[in-house]
Each structure stands twice: as C-alpha cells, then as structure tokens.
Design a protein around this nucleic acid. Structure first.
Length: 418
DNA sequence: TGACGTCAAGATCCG
DNA sequence: CGGATCTTGACGTCA
C-alpha cells in the first residue's frame, strides 16, 4: 500500500512552480519556466524519497502551455538530461508517479476542435511520463467529460475517441468517476467495454452516487478488478469534503480519525491511495503514520518538531497534551497523536496563543538578528496585539529571520504555512 | 453570462 | 520603494 499526494510540496525549499500568461508565452520565457519547474520537480522527488513517500502526482503545469500552439521548442529533447536524472531517481526509489489533466481536458466533446485539443493534451502527458522513462504503471487519470443531453451517446463518443488515440497513450489512461456527470456505475461500464482501468473517487461517489446500493468498499473491489498486472497496483482517490465549502471542495487537511476508519474498512490494504487535499504532503505523512502503529517514536518526534509551533499558536493546552504524550510513553498511539493535531487545526482565533507562539519562535532567532529585525519584530508584535495587522505578517517576518540565519529547525516548521 | 478550481502573476493600494 | 492585498488568467461545461 502507498499513500500519496498531488502536485506540490508544502514546507520545503525550491519546490514551488512558476507560471506565465499566454501573452508572455514567448519561447525564451517558456524555456525558463519549464527548466525552473523541472528543477522544482526534482526537489519534490527528492523530498518524497527522503520522507519515504512512494506515490506522487506530477502537476500538469510543469511544462507551461505544453500542448498549446504557442509551444514551439522541443522540450523533451532540450531537457533530456534533466528528465533522465529525475527519471532515474524515481525508478531507483520505487516512486510511482502519475498525472491528471484538469476538468478542461474533454475527450468526448462534440464541439469542433475540443476533442482534438484533449488528444493533444493527453499526448503531452504521455510524452512527459515517457521522458522520465516511467513504466506503464505510471498512469494518466482522466474524467469521461460532458453529457450533452445524451449520456449514452456522449459515452460512445468517449470510447470512439479513446480508440483513435495511439496505443502507447491508451495504455497509460485510467478513468475516474466525477462529482456530477459520470457516476462509478457509468464509468465502470465504460471501463468494461474498453478495458481501461478505473480509479474510484470516494468524494465524487458521495456527491454523485450510483443507482444500486453497493458500499464504497464494494465499489473499490469492483474497480480494483479492472486493473491488469501490467497496470500496477489498483489505485483510488481519497478526499474529505471541506466544512462549509462549496460542492465537492476538498478539505484543508485529512481528518486522521475519519481516514483510519476508512482504511480499516478497506477490503484490500495493498491498493494505492492518492489523497486530494489542500495540505498535500502533510496529510500524506499524517495518513501513513496514523495507520502505522509500529512507527518508531523518533519519526513521530520529527513530525512534532514541525507541528509544534503551529499547535502552540492555536492552543496551549493541546500543545501540552501532545508534549506529555510523547514524553511519557514508550509506545505512541499514532492515530491519537494526529487526532490531537487535527483538534488544534479546527478554526478558532486564540489571540493570546498566537502571541505566545510568535514569542517562542522569536526566542530561537533573537540572538542572531540585526537590530532592525529586532525592532521590526517588536513593532509587529505590538501591532498584532492592537489588532491592526494579521498574524500572517508576523510569520513572514519570523520566517525571513530564520531563513537568513539558516535555522533549519525553525525554517522547517509548518507554523509558517497556515 | 457567471460559477466552477487553482495558485501564481500581475495590478493596485498603503505607509 | 517595499510590502500587503486584491484581481486576473486559462481551460470547457452547465445552469
């Protein structure tokens, strides 16, 4: 079993992606951005390897406007060496990578040109994975598309256009149920006609259920059966709905208790689970740890070091509870640890806790800070106490001080990212 | 015609 | 001018 996350890493340096507007999409700018993004991808791959994460979705935006007419240079060839190096790292670590074109890649559209653009986009995704020498188990996950007042006809168009794709692209594709048009039942039917493996998405299923009354776990078994040996381990998408969010919006973080309950219900624990969640790698590590009761205490202490000041800024009492838990027990209940972390993440505005945490972080930094930085800290603290600035501004200043001093313990803290 | 999702880039505002 | 904050972009479908 592998648990993974999508597209970007929170809290590690040199991993952020660059973008550009169509009006700035000259060849030199595209080159520059593609190179920067491939370098960021390498940093993300390094991060995954270091953290023992073995499932990762690569962002479609690494090569900007890759399947747009604006793109004229041969990025596969120009960055061949970089692709080789990243690909070798991925392979030797046993990292399974995938890609997932967005909701705007619609292979079954009847409108002129849209399906052709979708095919070109799939060609790009396949070329990207080919450039990494990724095996056939590295998949491209695609939704079926629109309905156009006639679902059967629209599904037939999908199948027709799929069959027209070059075989190497066909063999990379996986289809997924969506939150309003194609339910798990609809997609499974297309999977059975075409032989395309299917990813089951639990939240989409909740929002767009199938007519029969199978449980989500029964659906997972049915979908897993669509994967052949060459396709690699069956995979699902797992997410939780955002509280008070719009329909289908993903939660900020995965609730550990809810995930563990889901995991315990899984009939086959060897499948791969791709998390779709705002806090990305944080939730991936959380879920991996939460279902691993034999986790060495040292690894949980590393997690605590990263969460500590974030928790402290929300609630002093939860901070103390977790602190005591790690101090006194030889064996830690990892799920309980993350339940407490989740409890600290629930939205509250504890002004005093924010001030206290900022002062604690400052305690690590003040010794090696310039006078002007010290002055600014105290000014910001006063302003925050008076309610004239947001805590975000203070965190930005503290991060700058920590980065300047290269204080890795503080720089790596999740405190700065929320 | 706007919502949907996404997150930097770009624009504008503030001190 | 630097930094904070608001708006735009790029895509296709559906209401």
């Amino acid at each position: 079993m592998a648990i993974g996350f999508a597209c970007l890493v929170i809290g590690d340096i040199n991993t952020s992606l660059s973008h550009c507007r169509l009006k700035n999409a000259g060849q030199n700018n595209l080159r520059k951005i593609a190179f920067a993004n491939l370098s960021a991808l390498e940093a993300m791959v390094d991060y995954n390897i270091k953290q023992g994460i073995s499932l990762f979705r690569i962002s479609s935006d690494i090569i900007p406007f890759a399947s747009h007419p604006e793109m004229e240079f041969d990025w596969q060839h120009e960055f061949g060496q970089l692709f080789d190096r990243i690909g070798r790292k991925i392979k030797s670590a046993g990292l399974r990578v995938s890609m997932h074109p967005g909701q705007y890649t619609v292979l079954n559209s009847p409108r002129p040109g849209i399906a052709e653009k979708a095919a070109a986009d799939l060609q790009y995704h396949a070329a990207f994975l080919d450039s990494l020498s990724a095996g056939r188990e590295s998949k491209i996950i695609l939704h079926i598309g629109g309905v156009y007042d006639d679902k059967n006809k629209a599904a037939a168009s999908f199948i027709e256009n799929f069959n027209r794709l070059p075989l190497p692209i066909q063999s990379r594709l996986v289809i997924e149920n969506d939150d309003k048009n194609y339910s798990a039942e609809d997609v499974l039917e297309i999977s059975q006609v075409t032989g395309i493996p299917m990813v089951f998405d639990n939240l989409h299923h909740l929002l767009n259920p199938s007519r029969n009354n199978l449980s989500q776990f029964e659906w997972i078994e049915l979908c897993s059966a669509t994967w052949k040996a060459a396709d690699g381990k069956p995979k699902i998408h797992y997410s939780q709905a955002k509280d008070g969010g719009s329909r289908g919006a993903h939660s900020n973080t995965i609730n550990a208790r809810e995930f563990v309950e889901f995991y315990n219900g899984l009939p086959d624990k060897t499948i791969d689970i791709m998390l779709e969640v705002k806090d990305k790698n944080l939730s991936a590590i959380k879920c991996m740890n939460a279902v691993n009761p034999g986790l060495p205490v040292g690894q949980l202490e590393e997690e605590w070091a990263r969460y500590k000041y974030l928790v402290l800024s929300r609630s002093a009492s939860i901070h103390n509870e977790i602190s005591d838990m790690l101090k006194n027990k030889p064996i830690i209940d990892t799920a309980a640890f993350y339940e407490m972390i989740d409890r600290a993440g629930e939205p509250t505005e504890d002004h005093d806790a924010q001030v206290y945490a900022a002062q604690k972080v400052w305690g690590y930094l003040k010794g090696s800070c310039s006078e002007s930085k010290k002055k600014r800290f105290h000014k910001l603290l006063k302003q925050y106490s008076e309610g004239t600035i947001r805590i975000h501004t203070m965190k930005k200043h503290l991060f700058k001080c920590a980065a300047e001093q290269n204080n890795q313990y503080i720089v790596k803290s999740y405190y700065f990212y929320f």
